[in-house]
Design a protein around this nucleic acid. Structure first.
Lengths: 167, 167
DNA sequence: AATTTTGAGGAACGATCGTTCTTGACTGAT
DNA sequence: ATCAGTCAAGAACGATCGTTCCTCAAAATT
């Protein structure tokens, strides 16, 4: 029944993660999406409802494919240095942009990212046997390093000092 | 010669700092600026040249009025806890948004914020007598905590641990 | 008082925004 | 072979974007 699709929905969403992770939401136009995602305007709206719908799909995909595996890996981290290495090695562009750009204006986005960050906090707290508040501080510190472009040596200096305290 | 202004340029720029510090650049329209800044469209373009011109003026005002004083205060900080308290107490909304939102798309913005962050790094390094790389890590960590909304206890837990290492 | 200069006021510009509509091509079922 | 349903293609929608133009009011200079 009906013509079959010429685009892969999963590929489209993953490509959207890349686009939305590189620029602010308002900086990515629907024309950009249509051009770089290989999906037609009509199909985009048929499939995702709106630009925001595609953004939410991309965000959830990012949280599921990138952030949740990170939290699982963090659960086995032996020390803070490993934690920071794992976090800064992950591709968290969309999460970071979501926090500063969309969360203040879209409460659904705010809820998603808050839950994701809380999951990371908990994983770190469990892995290092430290209070959640301290783990949240570590998460924040790691995000700050990602924010600055992770000059690779900055985080190292910080965690070396942190870990000398013992677990 | 000529009619005198009915708006205060300094007030306009400070108000612009508030607006641009609260939402992404593309999320602040010229209509928003005209409405909330008490300056007429025509005067805005006459005075600042463009929306970007006003943004740059606001950014420089923010760096001069908020960030530079912070760096000077940091130079007298006795320990990392004071550093984080000072940084998280400062209003760095525009700086943060500039880093993630505008710097990647506007190299003039990128240069301004890079210099400002380097100034903070150096002030911390001098105050705590630590390597610049470690100070940059502290700056990044503080920005990350600001990013997460500074739950006030997160940063405290982190610096308590940091300072136990000694100065 | 006349002239000149500058800002205020507001309409209007072309471009682009997110979204929808119209048309035709393709595919599975009758 | 016909029909019904889905997708592709692209024009086009109204709204809003940043920016400019035109006209009038106010203040300094002559």
């Amino acid at each position: 029944m009906g013509r079959q699709r010429t685009f892969d929905e999963d590929e489209v969403v993953r490509a959207a993660v890349g686009l939305f992770g590189g620029r602010a939401y308002d900086g990515v136009s629907v024309d950009d999406l249509v051009t770089h995602l290989g999906v037609h305007r009509n199909s985009l709206y048929k499939t995702f409802g709106s630009k925001r719908g595609l953004y939410l799909a991309a965000l959830r995909r990012h949280l599921g494919d990138d952030v949740r595996p990170l939290a699982e890996a963090l659960a086995a981290a032996p020390d803070a240095a490993t934690v920071l290495r794992l976090v800064t090695a992950a591709d968290l562009g969309l999460l970071l942009l979501a926090v500063v750009d969309r969360a203040p204006a879209d409460e659904e986005v705010a809820a998603e990212v808050a839950a994701a960050l809380a999951g990371i906090d908990q994983a770190i707290a469990d892995a290092l046997h430290i209070p959640t508040a301290l783990a949240a501080g570590l998460t924040a510190a790691a995000l700050g390093i990602v924010l600055r472009g992770n000059p690779d040596g900055v985080g190292a200096a910080l965690t070396q000092r942190f870990d000398r305290q013992g677990k």
